[in-house]
Design a protein around this nucleic acid. Structure first.
Length: 434
RNA sequence: GCCCCGAUAGUGUAGCGGUCUAUCAUACGGGCCUGUCGAGCCCGUGACAUGGGUUCAAAUCCCGUUCGGGGCGCCA
Protein backbone atom coordinates (compact mmCIF):
# COMPACT_ATOMS: atom_id res chain seq x y z
CA UNK A 1 0.00 0.00 0.00
CA UNK A 2 1.41 3.39 -0.90
CA UNK A 3 1.33 6.46 1.28
CA UNK A 4 -1.45 7.99 -0.76
CA UNK A 5 -3.84 5.13 -0.05
CA UNK A 6 -2.84 5.07 3.59
CA UNK A 7 -4.00 8.64 4.06
CA UNK A 8 -7.39 7.85 2.67
CA UNK A 9 -10.21 6.89 4.96
CA UNK A 10 -13.13 4.85 3.68
CA UNK A 11 -16.40 6.54 4.49
CA UNK A 12 -17.76 3.62 6.51
CA UNK A 13 -14.76 4.00 8.80
CA UNK A 14 -15.66 7.54 9.76
CA UNK A 15 -16.94 6.82 13.24
CA UNK A 16 -17.02 8.65 16.57
CA UNK A 17 -13.25 8.36 16.88
CA UNK A 18 -12.62 10.78 14.02
CA UNK A 19 -14.66 13.61 15.56
CA UNK A 20 -12.52 16.71 15.73
CA UNK A 21 -9.88 15.16 13.47
CA UNK A 22 -8.73 15.90 9.95
CA UNK A 23 -9.54 13.28 7.34
CA UNK A 24 -9.15 12.67 3.63
CA UNK A 25 -11.79 10.86 1.61
CA UNK A 26 -12.06 10.10 -2.08
CA UNK A 27 -15.06 9.18 -4.13
CA UNK A 28 -17.81 10.24 -6.50
CA UNK A 29 -20.18 13.18 -6.20
CA UNK A 30 -23.43 11.51 -5.22
CA UNK A 31 -25.52 14.62 -4.96
CA UNK A 32 -25.07 18.37 -4.69
CA UNK A 33 -27.27 20.74 -2.73
CA UNK A 34 -26.61 24.41 -2.90
CA UNK A 35 -28.17 26.70 -0.34
CA UNK A 36 -27.60 30.37 0.19
CA UNK A 37 -25.06 30.16 2.96
CA UNK A 38 -23.72 26.66 2.52
CA UNK A 39 -23.12 24.04 -0.14
CA UNK A 40 -23.44 20.33 0.49
CA UNK A 41 -21.67 17.71 -1.57
CA UNK A 42 -22.55 14.11 -0.84
CA UNK A 43 -19.49 12.05 -1.58
CA UNK A 44 -19.75 8.32 -2.15
CA UNK A 45 -17.15 5.60 -2.10
CA UNK A 46 -17.78 1.88 -2.21
CA UNK A 47 -18.41 1.79 1.53
CA UNK A 48 -20.84 4.64 2.06
CA UNK A 49 -21.86 8.25 1.63
CA UNK A 50 -20.62 11.26 3.57
CA UNK A 51 -21.62 14.91 3.49
CA UNK A 52 -19.03 17.50 2.66
CA UNK A 53 -19.97 21.02 3.70
CA UNK A 54 -18.59 24.17 2.15
CA UNK A 55 -19.48 27.44 3.78
CA UNK A 56 -19.88 30.29 1.33
CA UNK A 57 -17.11 32.28 2.96
CA UNK A 58 -14.60 29.43 2.94
CA UNK A 59 -12.10 29.99 0.13
CA UNK A 60 -11.23 26.67 -1.42
CA UNK A 61 -8.43 26.81 -3.89
CA UNK A 62 -8.86 25.07 -7.21
CA UNK A 63 -12.47 24.35 -6.49
CA UNK A 64 -15.33 25.48 -8.65
CA UNK A 65 -18.62 24.27 -7.28
CA UNK A 66 -20.71 26.02 -9.92
CA UNK A 67 -19.52 23.73 -12.67
CA UNK A 68 -19.31 20.53 -10.65
CA UNK A 69 -21.46 17.67 -11.90
CA UNK A 70 -22.75 14.60 -10.17
CA UNK A 71 -20.51 11.53 -10.41
CA UNK A 72 -17.38 13.63 -10.79
CA UNK A 73 -14.45 12.20 -8.86
CA UNK A 74 -13.21 14.15 -5.84
CA UNK A 75 -10.50 14.11 -3.25
CA UNK A 76 -11.67 15.93 -0.16
CA UNK A 77 -9.69 16.96 2.88
CA UNK A 78 -11.55 18.32 5.82
CA UNK A 79 -12.28 18.43 9.49
CA UNK A 80 -14.93 16.25 11.06
CA UNK A 81 -16.72 18.69 13.37
CA UNK A 82 -17.32 17.63 16.97
CA UNK A 83 -20.82 18.95 16.59
CA UNK A 84 -22.50 16.99 13.80
CA UNK A 85 -25.59 18.65 12.38
CA UNK A 86 -26.32 16.17 9.59
CA UNK A 87 -28.93 13.64 10.55
CA UNK A 88 -28.04 10.50 8.63
CA UNK A 89 -24.49 10.70 7.46
CA UNK A 90 -21.16 11.83 8.74
CA UNK A 91 -20.26 15.38 7.93
CA UNK A 92 -16.91 16.75 6.88
CA UNK A 93 -16.14 20.47 6.81
CA UNK A 94 -14.03 20.78 3.68
CA UNK A 95 -10.65 22.47 3.85
CA UNK A 96 -9.53 21.35 0.42
CA UNK A 97 -11.35 19.85 -2.54
CA UNK A 98 -9.56 18.50 -5.57
CA UNK A 99 -11.51 17.53 -8.67
CA UNK A 100 -9.73 14.40 -9.88
CA UNK A 101 -11.98 14.00 -12.90
CA UNK A 102 -15.18 15.54 -14.13
CA UNK A 103 -18.35 13.74 -15.15
CA UNK A 104 -20.49 14.64 -18.11
CA UNK A 105 -24.18 15.45 -17.64
CA UNK A 106 -26.90 14.37 -17.78
CA UNK A 107 -26.13 10.80 -16.79
CA UNK A 108 -27.44 7.99 -19.03
CA UNK A 109 -28.69 6.26 -15.92
CA UNK A 110 -29.60 7.59 -12.49
CA UNK A 111 -27.16 6.57 -9.75
CA UNK A 112 -28.50 8.44 -6.75
CA UNK A 113 -32.21 8.45 -7.54
CA UNK A 114 -34.69 5.80 -6.54
CA UNK A 115 -35.85 5.39 -10.11
CA UNK A 116 -35.88 1.85 -11.42
CA UNK A 117 -34.46 1.59 -14.90
CA UNK A 118 -35.02 -1.24 -17.34
CA UNK A 119 -32.44 -3.99 -17.08
CA UNK A 120 -31.64 -3.34 -20.72
CA UNK A 121 -30.76 0.28 -20.01
CA UNK A 122 -28.82 -0.73 -16.94
CA UNK A 123 -26.74 -3.30 -18.78
CA UNK A 124 -26.01 -0.89 -21.60
CA UNK A 125 -24.54 1.43 -18.98
CA UNK A 126 -23.31 -1.24 -16.63
CA UNK A 127 -20.32 0.78 -15.35
CA UNK A 128 -22.72 3.34 -13.91
CA UNK A 129 -25.31 0.82 -12.83
CA UNK A 130 -22.72 -0.93 -10.71
CA UNK A 131 -22.00 2.30 -8.83
CA UNK A 132 -25.27 1.75 -7.04
CA UNK A 133 -24.48 0.10 -3.73
CA UNK A 134 -27.30 -2.43 -4.02
CA UNK A 135 -25.79 -3.68 -7.26
CA UNK A 136 -22.24 -3.73 -5.96
CA UNK A 137 -23.42 -5.80 -3.01
CA UNK A 138 -24.58 -8.58 -5.34
CA UNK A 139 -20.98 -9.08 -6.38
CA UNK A 140 -19.76 -8.77 -2.83
CA UNK A 141 -22.09 -11.65 -1.96
CA UNK A 142 -21.01 -13.64 -5.01
CA UNK A 143 -17.38 -13.20 -4.01
CA UNK A 144 -17.98 -14.19 -0.37
CA UNK A 145 -19.98 -17.19 -1.49
CA UNK A 146 -17.21 -18.39 -3.76
CA UNK A 147 -14.60 -17.73 -1.10
CA UNK A 148 -16.52 -19.87 1.38
CA UNK A 149 -16.83 -22.68 -1.16
CA UNK A 150 -13.12 -22.49 -2.00
CA UNK A 151 -12.16 -22.54 1.66
CA UNK A 152 -14.28 -25.62 2.25
CA UNK A 153 -12.94 -27.50 -0.75
CA UNK A 154 -9.37 -26.70 0.24
CA UNK A 155 -10.11 -28.00 3.73
CA UNK A 156 -11.24 -31.26 2.14
CA UNK A 157 -8.01 -31.75 0.23
CA UNK A 158 -9.07 -30.39 -3.15
CA UNK A 159 -6.72 -28.39 -5.30
CA UNK A 160 -7.91 -25.76 -7.71
CA UNK A 161 -7.09 -26.39 -11.36
CA UNK A 162 -7.60 -24.66 -14.70
CA UNK A 163 -8.52 -26.60 -17.81
CA UNK A 164 -8.84 -25.42 -21.41
CA UNK A 165 -11.86 -23.50 -22.59
CA UNK A 166 -10.94 -23.90 -26.23
CA UNK A 167 -11.55 -27.51 -27.14
CA UNK A 168 -11.84 -29.77 -30.15
CA UNK A 169 -15.05 -31.61 -29.39
CA UNK A 170 -18.21 -31.49 -27.41
CA UNK A 171 -18.44 -32.76 -23.84
CA UNK A 172 -21.85 -34.26 -23.88
CA UNK A 173 -22.98 -34.11 -27.46
CA UNK A 174 -26.28 -32.59 -26.46
CA UNK A 175 -25.79 -28.91 -25.79
CA UNK A 176 -24.85 -26.62 -28.63
CA UNK A 177 -21.33 -25.29 -28.71
CA UNK A 178 -19.91 -22.01 -29.92
CA UNK A 179 -17.64 -22.63 -32.84
CA UNK A 180 -14.45 -20.60 -33.04
CA UNK A 181 -11.61 -20.36 -35.54
CA UNK A 182 -8.40 -21.69 -34.06
CA UNK A 183 -5.76 -20.88 -36.67
CA UNK A 184 -6.35 -23.45 -39.43
CA UNK A 185 -8.58 -25.60 -37.21
CA UNK A 186 -12.15 -25.53 -36.03
CA UNK A 187 -12.53 -25.39 -32.28
CA UNK A 188 -15.27 -24.87 -29.71
CA UNK A 189 -15.74 -23.03 -26.45
CA UNK A 190 -16.08 -25.63 -23.75
CA UNK A 191 -19.51 -26.18 -22.25
CA UNK A 192 -18.06 -27.90 -19.17
CA UNK A 193 -14.70 -28.99 -17.74
CA UNK A 194 -16.15 -32.48 -17.30
CA UNK A 195 -13.78 -34.49 -19.46
CA UNK A 196 -10.67 -32.69 -18.28
CA UNK A 197 -11.38 -32.99 -14.59
CA UNK A 198 -11.99 -36.72 -15.08
CA UNK A 199 -8.66 -37.04 -16.87
CA UNK A 200 -7.04 -35.45 -13.82
CA UNK A 201 -8.53 -38.19 -11.65
CA UNK A 202 -6.70 -40.68 -13.84
CA UNK A 203 -3.62 -38.53 -13.31
CA UNK A 204 -3.85 -39.21 -9.60
CA UNK A 205 -4.86 -35.71 -8.49
CA UNK A 206 -7.59 -37.43 -6.46
CA UNK A 207 -9.53 -34.25 -5.68
CA UNK A 208 -9.77 -31.28 -8.00
CA UNK A 209 -12.03 -28.31 -8.39
CA UNK A 210 -12.28 -25.60 -10.99
CA UNK A 211 -14.01 -22.25 -11.09
CA UNK A 212 -14.34 -21.03 -14.62
CA UNK A 213 -16.57 -19.98 -17.48
CA UNK A 214 -18.78 -22.45 -19.27
CA UNK A 215 -20.34 -21.68 -22.63
CA UNK A 216 -23.67 -22.88 -23.92
CA UNK A 217 -24.78 -21.97 -27.41
CA UNK A 218 -28.42 -22.61 -26.65
CA UNK A 219 -30.89 -20.04 -27.83
CA UNK A 220 -32.74 -19.92 -24.58
CA UNK A 221 -34.47 -16.79 -23.54
CA UNK A 222 -35.26 -16.97 -19.87
CA UNK A 223 -34.52 -15.19 -16.60
CA UNK A 224 -32.34 -18.03 -15.35
CA UNK A 225 -30.04 -18.87 -18.25
CA UNK A 226 -26.81 -17.29 -19.43
CA UNK A 227 -24.80 -18.30 -22.46
CA UNK A 228 -21.63 -17.77 -20.44
CA UNK A 229 -21.79 -18.64 -16.78
CA UNK A 230 -19.41 -19.46 -13.96
CA UNK A 231 -19.24 -23.13 -13.21
CA UNK A 232 -17.86 -24.45 -9.95
CA UNK A 233 -16.85 -28.00 -10.72
CA UNK A 234 -15.37 -30.74 -8.58
CA UNK A 235 -14.23 -34.27 -9.26
CA UNK A 236 -13.06 -36.74 -6.62
CA UNK A 237 -11.40 -40.13 -7.01
CA UNK A 238 -12.23 -43.30 -5.08
CA UNK A 239 -15.65 -41.83 -4.43
CA UNK A 240 -19.27 -42.27 -5.38
CA UNK A 241 -22.31 -40.03 -5.72
CA UNK A 242 -22.98 -40.16 -1.97
CA UNK A 243 -19.51 -38.73 -1.30
CA UNK A 244 -20.10 -36.06 -3.92
CA UNK A 245 -23.38 -35.02 -2.30
CA UNK A 246 -21.67 -34.70 1.08
CA UNK A 247 -19.08 -32.41 -0.49
CA UNK A 248 -21.76 -30.40 -2.22
CA UNK A 249 -23.90 -29.69 0.80
CA UNK A 250 -20.76 -28.91 2.79
CA UNK A 251 -19.57 -26.48 0.13
CA UNK A 252 -22.93 -24.74 -0.18
CA UNK A 253 -23.27 -24.41 3.58
CA UNK A 254 -19.74 -23.07 3.90
CA UNK A 255 -20.35 -20.57 1.11
CA UNK A 256 -23.51 -19.22 2.67
CA UNK A 257 -21.90 -19.12 6.10
CA UNK A 258 -19.19 -16.95 4.65
CA UNK A 259 -21.74 -14.63 3.05
CA UNK A 260 -23.63 -14.23 6.30
CA UNK A 261 -20.41 -13.68 8.22
CA UNK A 262 -18.68 -11.23 5.91
CA UNK A 263 -21.31 -9.39 3.95
CA UNK A 264 -22.01 -5.80 4.75
CA UNK A 265 -25.61 -6.88 4.56
CA UNK A 266 -27.06 -6.99 1.04
CA UNK A 267 -29.38 -4.11 0.54
CA UNK A 268 -31.29 -6.10 -2.05
CA UNK A 269 -35.01 -6.18 -1.48
CA UNK A 270 -35.62 -9.52 0.15
CA UNK A 271 -32.75 -11.71 1.23
CA UNK A 272 -34.96 -14.09 3.15
CA UNK A 273 -33.09 -17.15 1.98
CA UNK A 274 -29.91 -15.81 3.51
CA UNK A 275 -29.96 -18.17 6.44
CA UNK A 276 -27.31 -20.81 6.81
CA UNK A 277 -29.05 -24.01 5.71
CA UNK A 278 -29.11 -27.13 7.84
CA UNK A 279 -27.30 -30.17 6.47
CA UNK A 280 -27.83 -32.86 5.40
CA UNK A 281 -30.23 -31.70 2.72
CA UNK A 282 -33.16 -34.04 2.05
CA UNK A 283 -32.48 -36.70 -0.59
CA UNK A 284 -35.57 -37.37 -2.67
CA UNK A 285 -35.53 -40.06 -5.29
CA UNK A 286 -36.69 -39.24 -8.79
CA UNK A 287 -39.44 -41.88 -8.53
CA UNK A 288 -40.77 -40.19 -5.40
CA UNK A 289 -40.86 -36.84 -7.18
CA UNK A 290 -42.71 -38.52 -10.02
CA UNK A 291 -45.41 -39.70 -7.60
CA UNK A 292 -45.63 -36.25 -6.06
CA UNK A 293 -46.14 -34.63 -9.43
CA UNK A 294 -48.60 -37.24 -10.61
CA UNK A 295 -50.59 -36.89 -7.38
CA UNK A 296 -50.96 -33.20 -8.23
CA UNK A 297 -52.64 -34.19 -11.48
CA UNK A 298 -49.72 -33.69 -13.86
CA UNK A 299 -49.16 -36.05 -16.75
CA UNK A 300 -45.63 -37.38 -16.67
CA UNK A 301 -44.05 -40.76 -17.23
CA UNK A 302 -40.86 -42.38 -16.04
CA UNK A 303 -37.99 -41.19 -18.18
CA UNK A 304 -39.14 -37.61 -18.59
CA UNK A 305 -37.59 -34.54 -17.11
CA UNK A 306 -39.74 -32.29 -14.95
CA UNK A 307 -41.23 -29.15 -16.44
CA UNK A 308 -40.90 -25.86 -14.55
CA UNK A 309 -44.49 -26.23 -13.38
CA UNK A 310 -43.77 -29.74 -12.11
CA UNK A 311 -40.62 -28.60 -10.33
CA UNK A 312 -42.74 -25.98 -8.63
CA UNK A 313 -44.96 -28.74 -7.29
CA UNK A 314 -41.95 -30.59 -5.93
CA UNK A 315 -40.49 -27.37 -4.56
CA UNK A 316 -43.67 -26.69 -2.64
CA UNK A 317 -43.10 -29.90 -0.72
CA UNK A 318 -39.43 -29.22 -0.12
CA UNK A 319 -38.87 -25.52 0.44
CA UNK A 320 -35.15 -24.94 0.60
CA UNK A 321 -32.26 -27.07 -0.60
CA UNK A 322 -32.87 -30.71 -1.50
CA UNK A 323 -31.41 -33.39 -3.74
CA UNK A 324 -33.29 -35.22 -6.44
CA UNK A 325 -31.46 -38.54 -6.77
CA UNK A 326 -31.59 -41.68 -8.89
CA UNK A 327 -32.46 -40.08 -12.20
CA UNK A 328 -33.35 -42.31 -15.15
CA UNK A 329 -30.18 -43.30 -16.90
CA UNK A 330 -31.40 -42.14 -20.29
CA UNK A 331 -31.79 -38.55 -19.03
CA UNK A 332 -28.14 -38.35 -18.04
CA UNK A 333 -24.96 -37.88 -20.05
CA UNK A 334 -22.84 -40.82 -21.20
CA UNK A 335 -20.34 -40.52 -18.35
CA UNK A 336 -22.98 -41.09 -15.66
CA UNK A 337 -22.76 -44.38 -13.74
CA UNK A 338 -25.85 -46.57 -13.86
CA UNK A 339 -27.34 -47.87 -10.64
CA UNK A 340 -25.96 -51.42 -10.23
CA UNK A 341 -29.28 -52.49 -8.69
CA UNK A 342 -31.47 -51.09 -11.46
CA UNK A 343 -30.14 -50.55 -14.95
CA UNK A 344 -32.78 -47.95 -15.75
CA UNK A 345 -31.58 -45.66 -12.97
CA UNK A 346 -28.32 -43.82 -12.45
CA UNK A 347 -26.15 -42.81 -9.52
CA UNK A 348 -26.91 -39.20 -10.19
CA UNK A 349 -28.34 -36.20 -8.40
CA UNK A 350 -29.41 -32.62 -8.86
CA UNK A 351 -29.28 -30.05 -6.11
CA UNK A 352 -32.42 -27.97 -6.13
CA UNK A 353 -33.55 -24.90 -4.31
CA UNK A 354 -37.31 -24.94 -4.53
CA UNK A 355 -38.02 -25.17 -8.27
CA UNK A 356 -34.53 -24.13 -9.32
CA UNK A 357 -31.74 -26.48 -10.32
CA UNK A 358 -28.36 -25.36 -9.06
CA UNK A 359 -26.11 -28.37 -9.42
CA UNK A 360 -25.93 -31.55 -11.37
CA UNK A 361 -23.68 -34.41 -10.32
CA UNK A 362 -23.11 -38.12 -10.33
CA UNK A 363 -20.83 -41.03 -9.88
CA UNK A 364 -19.03 -41.49 -13.21
CA UNK A 365 -18.41 -44.49 -15.34
CA UNK A 366 -14.81 -45.61 -14.78
CA UNK A 367 -14.79 -48.84 -16.81
CA UNK A 368 -13.51 -48.07 -20.31
CA UNK A 369 -15.62 -50.75 -22.00
CA UNK A 370 -18.78 -49.52 -20.35
CA UNK A 371 -17.88 -45.97 -21.28
CA UNK A 372 -17.35 -46.93 -24.90
CA UNK A 373 -20.77 -48.55 -24.97
CA UNK A 374 -22.37 -45.48 -23.43
CA UNK A 375 -20.82 -43.36 -26.16
CA UNK A 376 -22.33 -45.56 -28.83
CA UNK A 377 -25.71 -45.65 -27.14
CA UNK A 378 -25.82 -41.83 -27.09
CA UNK A 379 -24.87 -41.69 -30.76
CA UNK A 380 -21.38 -40.30 -30.17
CA UNK A 381 -18.24 -41.47 -31.94
CA UNK A 382 -15.74 -42.85 -29.41
CA UNK A 383 -12.92 -42.02 -31.83
CA UNK A 384 -13.62 -38.30 -31.31
CA UNK A 385 -12.90 -38.74 -27.63
CA UNK A 386 -9.67 -40.75 -27.67
CA UNK A 387 -7.87 -38.12 -25.62
CA UNK A 388 -10.45 -38.78 -22.92
CA UNK A 389 -10.98 -42.51 -23.32
CA UNK A 390 -7.24 -43.20 -23.24
CA UNK A 391 -7.08 -41.93 -19.69
CA UNK A 392 -9.43 -44.75 -18.70
CA UNK A 393 -7.24 -47.53 -20.09
CA UNK A 394 -4.36 -47.43 -17.64
CA UNK A 395 -5.92 -47.31 -14.20
CA UNK A 396 -8.85 -44.97 -13.71
CA UNK A 397 -10.24 -44.99 -10.15
CA UNK A 398 -13.97 -44.90 -9.46
CA UNK A 399 -14.90 -41.26 -9.17
CA UNK A 400 -17.72 -38.76 -8.80
CA UNK A 401 -18.28 -35.04 -9.02
CA UNK A 402 -20.61 -32.16 -9.74
CA UNK A 403 -20.92 -28.80 -11.42
CA UNK A 404 -22.57 -25.87 -9.75
CA UNK A 405 -23.90 -22.71 -11.42
CA UNK A 406 -22.49 -19.87 -9.36
CA UNK A 407 -24.84 -17.25 -10.78
CA UNK A 408 -27.84 -19.47 -10.09
CA UNK A 409 -26.84 -19.89 -6.47
CA UNK A 410 -26.19 -16.17 -6.07
CA UNK A 411 -29.56 -15.41 -7.61
CA UNK A 412 -31.31 -17.74 -5.21
CA UNK A 413 -29.56 -16.38 -2.14
CA UNK A 414 -30.51 -12.82 -2.98
CA UNK A 415 -33.92 -13.70 -4.38
CA UNK A 416 -33.17 -11.91 -7.63
CA UNK A 417 -35.63 -12.14 -10.47
CA UNK A 418 -33.16 -12.22 -13.33
CA UNK A 419 -29.87 -14.11 -13.49
CA UNK A 420 -28.38 -11.30 -15.58
CA UNK A 421 -28.22 -9.26 -12.38
CA UNK A 422 -25.64 -11.68 -10.99
CA UNK A 423 -23.28 -11.40 -13.93
CA UNK A 424 -21.18 -8.26 -14.30
CA UNK A 425 -21.40 -8.35 -18.07
CA UNK A 426 -23.95 -11.01 -18.94
CA UNK A 427 -23.89 -12.87 -22.23
CA UNK A 428 -27.35 -13.79 -23.42
CA UNK A 429 -28.97 -14.64 -26.72
CA UNK A 430 -28.47 -11.14 -28.12
CA UNK A 431 -25.92 -9.44 -25.91
CA UNK A 432 -22.16 -9.50 -26.32
CA UNK A 433 -21.56 -5.83 -25.44
CA UNK A 434 -20.42 -4.50 -23.05
C1' G B 1 -36.95 -23.02 -32.25
C1' C B 2 -42.25 -22.09 -30.58
C1' C B 3 -46.16 -18.95 -28.07
C1' C B 4 -47.69 -14.31 -25.96
C1' C B 5 -46.47 -9.00 -25.04
C1' G B 6 -44.15 -4.28 -25.62
C1' A B 7 -41.37 0.31 -27.82
C1' U B 8 -43.49 8.12 -25.64
C1' A B 9 -37.90 13.51 -23.19
C1' G B 10 -31.25 11.49 -20.04
C1' U B 11 -34.19 7.91 -16.72
C1' G B 12 -38.98 5.91 -15.38
C1' U B 13 -44.00 6.73 -16.90
C1' A B 14 -49.53 8.71 -18.35
C1' G B 15 -52.25 8.90 -22.76
C1' C B 16 -54.93 4.03 -26.52
C1' G B 17 -58.81 8.02 -33.05
C1' G B 18 -59.98 14.82 -32.83
C1' U B 19 -59.94 18.33 -26.29
C1' C B 20 -51.88 15.98 -27.62
C1' U B 21 -48.61 23.01 -29.86
C1' A B 22 -48.48 14.99 -25.36
C1' U B 23 -49.14 13.83 -18.55
C1' C B 24 -46.37 13.22 -14.18
C1' A B 25 -41.86 12.28 -11.42
C1' U B 26 -36.82 12.67 -11.55
C1' A B 27 -32.45 14.28 -14.03
C1' C B 28 -30.42 18.59 -16.73
C1' G B 29 -29.97 24.50 -17.26
C1' G B 30 -31.27 29.20 -14.66
C1' G B 31 -33.16 31.73 -10.22
C1' C B 32 -34.88 32.01 -4.96
C1' C B 33 -34.13 29.94 -0.06
C1' U B 34 -33.20 29.51 8.69
C1' G B 35 -27.92 23.80 7.14
C1' U B 36 -30.05 20.58 3.44
C1' C B 37 -30.51 15.37 4.50
C1' G B 38 -36.70 11.57 -0.11
C1' A B 39 -35.32 19.42 1.04
C1' G B 40 -38.82 23.24 -0.78
C1' C B 41 -40.53 27.10 -4.33
C1' C B 42 -40.38 29.64 -9.40
C1' C B 43 -38.83 29.52 -14.64
C1' G B 44 -36.76 26.83 -18.75
C1' U B 45 -34.73 22.80 -22.24
C1' G B 46 -36.18 18.00 -23.63
C1' A B 47 -39.88 12.47 -26.40
C1' C B 48 -44.41 9.52 -29.71
C1' A B 49 -38.48 3.22 -32.56
C1' U B 50 -38.82 2.80 -38.14
C1' G B 51 -41.32 2.20 -43.17
C1' G B 52 -45.96 1.78 -45.38
C1' G B 53 -51.39 1.78 -45.01
C1' U B 54 -56.63 3.04 -43.14
C1' U B 55 -59.08 7.84 -41.95
C1' C B 56 -61.49 14.37 -43.00
C1' A B 57 -58.15 13.43 -38.63
C1' A B 58 -53.11 8.60 -35.98
C1' A B 59 -48.81 8.57 -30.15
C1' U B 60 -53.59 6.04 -30.43
C1' C B 61 -56.18 1.37 -35.60
C1' C B 62 -53.78 -2.32 -39.47
C1' C B 63 -49.28 -4.58 -41.91
C1' G B 64 -43.91 -5.02 -42.43
C1' U B 65 -39.02 -4.03 -40.22
C1' U B 66 -35.73 -3.26 -36.14
C1' C B 67 -34.99 -3.59 -31.04
C1' G B 68 -36.64 -5.34 -26.36
C1' G B 69 -39.59 -8.19 -22.40
C1' G B 70 -41.99 -12.70 -20.47
C1' G B 71 -43.17 -17.92 -20.89
C1' C B 72 -42.02 -22.84 -23.04
C1' G B 73 -38.31 -26.22 -24.80
C1' C B 74 -32.94 -27.23 -23.25
C1' C B 75 -29.86 -26.88 -19.28
C1' A B 76 -26.18 -25.02 -14.36
Amino acid sequence: MNSHAMNRTFISQLGPEVLGKAVMVEGWVHEIKRLKSVDFIMIRDKTGIAQVTVKKDSPLKGFNLESLNRESVLKVKGLVPEKQISRNMIEIAATDIEILNRSAAPLPLPVAENIESDLETRLNNRFLDLRRHENYSIFEVKSSLLWGIRTFLHSQGFIEVNTPKVVASSTEGGADLFKVKYFEMDAYLNQSPQLYKEILISSGFERVFEVGPAFRAEKHNTTHHLNEFTSVDIEMGFSDHEDAMLMLEGAVKSGIENVVKSSTRPSTSSSTSLNVPEIPFPRIEYSRCLELVQAAGEKIEFGSDFSPEQLRIIGDSYPGFYFITKWPSELRPFYTMVDPDDETLSNSFDLQFREREITSGAQRVHDPEMLRNRFLKKGLKPADFDFYLNSFLYGMPPHAGWGLGLERLTMILLDLKNIRETSLFPRDRTRIVP
